[in-house]
Design a binder for these strands. Structure first.
Lengths: 238, 238
DNA sequence: ACGATAGGTGTACGCCGTACACCCGTCAAG
DNA sequence: CTTGACGGGTGTACGGCGTACACCTATCGT
């Protein structure tokens, strides 16, 4: 036992081992717990040892992001652009379910990593192969924005809390306290509608997956319509 | 002069004065510079003095968010639901242009403040008044997500950097270094398209406002179509 | 045999939020 | 007029963070 721990401790550090431990730590305890000190402790090593393999925390985060992006499925071979893009975005969403800290990491960096650029390039390629003009493809990529990476884009995202602190924060119950229902009657009404919607008052307030696909399909259907109409950038003529 | 400074320093602290100074500091220097110590210094006061008026930094952020939300225009009286919602979202976006730190604050809190709930309630009310079922209104609010507050939802948001550090980070030039163009040909292509798009190679790479309205209209048009079709939740029948 | 070098360590600095004890001016009650 | 409570500003200190820097040591090519 002690030998094993000792052996583990003496296993030489490597960039790869650090990245794996970092992802595991962020998965388990949230990105708030991912400090260089905590990470070093998990690896049985002094904090400053990490800096021999990683130049700083930002670079570590970049590498972690690339690991997550690499989990996104490749495009389905036979499918058209719509099914292909839809499938990849849903796959990206699954990857984020495994690594709920990833959106926070991406937003905190606000920089493109190589793996991320490769993914975006591939999605654009799918659109172009589907007959989109470069112009339309460009605007479509902007319109999808972070959703192309599977981000929920919800205003209040329980997954974000999970990514932050690892713990599963309890979702706000579908029925709100009465004084709130009085102040915000319309919100109370749609909350009630959502509760009835999935058949049980005690069930999950909203079906995240349904909401995500609803929004995604709204967007993709709109894009398809523009594409079929041969949309072209009409702004700033000349 | 010194008298005036002295007077200012002796002006009694108040929650209101603190909030105003906090917003001003975040506007000018980015939310990263909004520390209790910096804020106290701006007010000519000891850091701990703030805690007599604000219970902690999170509560301060909540109050700041409500100030920004309060800047969103009320709904235009005569307009239909679509113009009304569109107008408010564009107004929200203008508020965010004045306070680029606000999205980061909202995301960091991930909690609804009273002012924010009131705004959302009002938007839902507009939809309901436009004939939307509670069911559809609910899903539409999810589909819009943070966009209803004017968030750009871009993957790489230069405004986010501005909100973080106050400085205007230089936008990645429309033409990428050649080795990148080789690795990501499709991205290079749409970047070129965007550059030609607005007529000048040296002009702004992308027109943020255009991209925002493009995405917003894509969404609103789709929503209008669903509404006219009398869409109803078809998932989980029974 | 030996010097360079890669890799792990320990210490320290300057930030952060904030708990806690303190202190003083004002003002109401006796 | 005295006194005591209390609202509000201060100073110190704690534990956390990222990381610069000097140091030590084991390995390896010459």
């Amino acid at each position: 036992m002690v030998d094993q721990a000792e052996t583990l401790r003496r296993t030489p550090l490597s960039r790869d081992r650090i990245l794996r431990a970092a992802v595991a730590l962020a998965d388990a305890a949230g990105i708030e717990s991912l400090s260089m000190r905590n990470l070093a402790q998990d690896l049985g090593v002094a904090p400053m040892a990490l800096y021999k393999h990683v130049s700083n925390k930002d670079e570590l985060l970049d590498a972690m992001i690339d690991l997550v992006v690499a989990e996104i499925d490749p495009p389905a071979p036979g499918a058209g652009w719509k099914q292909s893009v839809r499938g990849r975005i849903l796959s990206a969403r699954q990857a984020l379910r495994r690594h709920p800290w990833a959106p926070l990491a991406v937003e905190s960096r606000n920089m493109a990593t190589p793996g991320l650029l490769a993914y975006l390039d591939s999605v654009v390629g799918t659109l172009r192969a589907g007959g989109f003009s470069a112009d339309l493809a460009h605007h479509v990529m902007h319109a999808m924005g972070s959703r192309v990476l599977g981000f929920s884009q919800e205003l209040f995202d329980t997954a974000r809390d999970t990514g932050r602190s690892g713990a599963a924060a309890d979702q706000p119950s579908a029925d709100m306290p009465p004084e709130m229902a009085a102040r915000f009657p319309h919100l109370a009404e749609i909350a009630r509608a959502a509760a009835h919607d999935d058949g049980s008052v005690v069930g999950p307030g909203c079906d995240d997956q349904f909401e995500f696909e609803f929004a995604l399909d709204l967007l993709l259907d709109g894009v398809e319509r523009l594409h079929r109409q041969g949309w072209t950038s009409a702004h700033r003529p000349g």
